[in-house]
Amino acid sequence: MSDILPSIPFIIKGIGVTLQFVIVSGILGFLIGVLLALAKLGKKSISKVLADAYTSFFRGTPLILQLVYVYFVIPQVTPWDITAFAAGVIAFSLNSAAYVSEIIRAGIQAVDKGQFEAAKALNVPYRTMMRKIILPQAIKYILPALMNEYITLLKESAVVSVIGAMDIMRRAQIVSADTFNYLGPLTVALVIYFLMVRILTFFGAKLEQRMSFSD
């Protein structure tokens, strides 16, 4: 075990890389997911069909394949020599958006129908109704599921190691290969991921508490 001690800081540096993927993809995935959810709930049947097709495609194919596809196919068919970071962010945010859109759609549909009617009866325009009345209530249903999605995203980000991004996982594998010691580096990686998820869960629970002020 002691022979990998000098390598631990090297693995720990991967936290920054992993976080970059997760934060950027999390934000982009959320924004795209909101748009998709609104399309699913809206009146236009074309956007509904497209949003549903999007979701079933990204949920129906392996994430690792989507990632590899973006990383290798884009440089083949376009002049863009895509970096591992860009490929990871594109694949993760598009994939996450599919799940987020379902979470938000379900959350909005969980809001009492009477809230929509009260807003309509008061002549509140659709956008204002969604932004100021429905979403603030839906967030209570959305948040727990969204936290799950971000935990999943954090853990699954480890697949970026297959396209060579220097995240926690990849660094642990490099140290393993260098030292022929698998127990040490991979255990370190396990502990890091586990602690990160615990921290995320902790903040998620705090946020949920704060949302319940009007109960």
């Binding site: 009477g114 009260a118 009866a121 008061l122 002549n123 603030p136 009007s214």
Partner: peptide
């Protein structure tokens, strides 16, 4: 819109905005 500006509605289950 024109109609709803002129009418107010009160529901059996209130439907106040809870937040």
């Amino acid at each position: 819109n024109e109609i709803r500006v002129k009418t107010g509605m009160v529901f059996q289950h209130f439907h106040l905005f809870p937040h």
